[in-house]
Each structure stands twice: as structure tokens, then as C-alpha cells.
Design a protein around this nucleic acid. Sequence first.
DNA 1: CACGCATGGTTCGCCACACGAACTATTTAC
DNA 2: GTAAATAGTTCGTGTGGCGAACCATGCGTG
Lengths: 159, 159
Amino acid sequence: MGKAEENWGVVTALVRSSFLVNAVYAEAAREYGLTPQQGQLLCVLMAQPYGMSELGAVLRLAKSSLTELVNRSTQRGLVRREPDRKDRRAVQVTLTEQGGELAEAFYTAACRRIDELPAGLDEAERATLTELLSRVVRDNNVPMVFLGRDEAAPSAHGR
Amino acid sequence: MGKAEENWGVVTALVRSSFLVNAVYAEAAREYGLTPQQGQLLCVLMAQPYGMSELGAVLRLAKSSLTELVNRSTQRGLVRREPDRKDRRAVQVTLTEQGGELAEAFYTAACRRIDELPAGLDEAERATLTELLSRVVRDNNVPMVFLGRDEAAPSAHGR
DNA sequence: CACGCATGGTTCGCCACACGAACTATTTAC
DNA sequence: GTAAATAGTTCGTGTGGCGAACCATGCGTG
């Protein structure tokens, strides 16, 4: 009997924490005049420029959705399309000056807020949580959404 | 230096697992011809009928957003508005026959998929993860989104 | 009782988002 | 050098989300 309970327990915990993080993330974005998607785009681009296709893979968006997102972000002066000198079809999406600053500010604020969520856990528990979640994430090949800063996007050169 | 690393570690882990769960949830919904929001609505209503205001609080949606969501779901024959006999302004949103069946099927499928995410963890680790995440969720008063089944929505009578 | 305020929902106008299908332009493969 | 793959855009459609304005009904106080 304990088995069954445990099983839906993980699911529930995952789903609810996901909603929680989402809500906080969206709230932070809103505070900076961003939609969650734009915020996410900015955070991804903080690490390095990306081509549209790569972005689509990272953000799990269809090409057309991405085109529109980049269009809107461009109109707001946050990002810019630059021609890829190796492939004249392709495009590199990069942060503008303004976009970079906003990204930095938003990123910091979002991290701060999310960091407060597990305030009830002590250091050891936080470490455990991090370790377990990281493994789940790695096991399910989640792209490097959010935070490519210290992680230095190693695959960038190697392709 | 170890401190700083740990800090962004929790944040990253939370954000990425959140994206992961979201993606899986959305995929499951899509498989059943639902949008994630509709799926969420159905799952919430599985436990019991709700008034619009309550729903708005649970789903964190503005009133108008909810009206539209319920409209669309009604048009698809998934839910139904019933008059509240105690308050003639109010409305109770309930699942239709069809909506109930679909909710059940979707809910089961979504749970199965999400349950597979932590497949790399052993029983003890899953239990730990559940416990830690549950505490985070409880500490941040997340409404009872998803799963009100075994949890029997106790506040329903007491108000 | 009547006035006014609070509450529960809907309507409206606006914009963001997400997708597939169809299209253009380049690159690559043969 | 043509054919197929690849990178992006455009277009049409439906969904989602919000605030402001609005209509009812309920409620409280003089």
C-alpha cells in the first residue's frame, strides 16, 4: 500500500512544483515588462547567440512560433538578427545592448525569487534536492534552458 | 565558492525540471486533443465542481481568462455550467459525461508519463524527492492543482 | 426599506503564442 | 547540374491571458 501512495506522490510533487516555478517565473517576467517566453529567450541568448533552428530545439518551439517570438522581441529592441557568414540562409539571433541589460536584470531577479522557494530547506536538503532533480533532468535530456553562464555551453564550438 | 555553486544549482534544477514537466504534460494533453489549460481544468474538476472564482484562484487566472477557457471547454462538450442554488449570481462548473471520461484518461496518461521521468531514481530517492518537493510546495501555498482524488479536497465542506 | 457597496460572472478589445502548411532561398548530395 | 535537404519566413487559425467596463445579485448600514 505504501507503494501506490509513493508513486502518485512523486507525480503530484513534480507537477505542483512545476506550476509553482512557472508562476514565479511568469511573475518575475511581468515585473520586467516581459512575457515568460521573451524572458526565456533572453536567458537562453545570454549565454551566446543561436540560430533559429537551434533555438527551436532548445525552447521546444515550432519554427514559425519562433519566428514570431523573435519578431516581437526584435520590435521591442531586445534582440537582433545577424547574418550567418558561413551559411547565407541562416541567421544568428543575438541580444542587443538593451536586451542584454534587461536579460541580466530579469535573470537575476528570477533567480532570486526562485531561490527563495526552498527557503524552508536547510543547506543539506537543498543540496539533496538539487542533486536528485539534476539527475532527473539529465536522464531526460532537457536542453540547457536557463543558465548557460557558468556552464559555458561547451557544445558551442564542437559542432 | 562551493556556496555560490550550490545556490544557482537549486534554481537551475527547479527551472529545468519545471520545463521538463511542462513539456511532458503538454505532450500528454496534445495526445488527447486537449490544450494544457483544458487538461488542467479537467483535472481540477475531477475532484469536484467549482465556482468560477474558486477556479480562478486555483488556476491562477484572471476572471475573464477563465470565462473564455470554460466557454471553449463547454463548446467541446467537456464541461457544463450549472446554476448555484444558493447564490443566483454564481455558477458551478462541472464535468460532463464525456469530459469526465476524457479527464480520467488524460489524467492517467499524464501521471504515467510524469511518473517515468524519475525512472533513474531508486525507491528511496524518489521518496526523498517527493518529501522535499512537497515541503517546498506546501511552504509556498500552492493550490491543490492536479490530484484532488485521494486528497479528498477537505476544504470543500468547511466553507 | 433604500441606498450604496461588494461580489460573481460576462463581454469586449487588445496583444501574445503556438501550430501546420505553403513558400523562398540557399546548401549539399549525387 | 539537377534533386533533395535545410534555414527561415509568411499566412491563416485557434487558444490564451489580461484589464476595463459592464450587469446582475447579495449584503450591510443608516
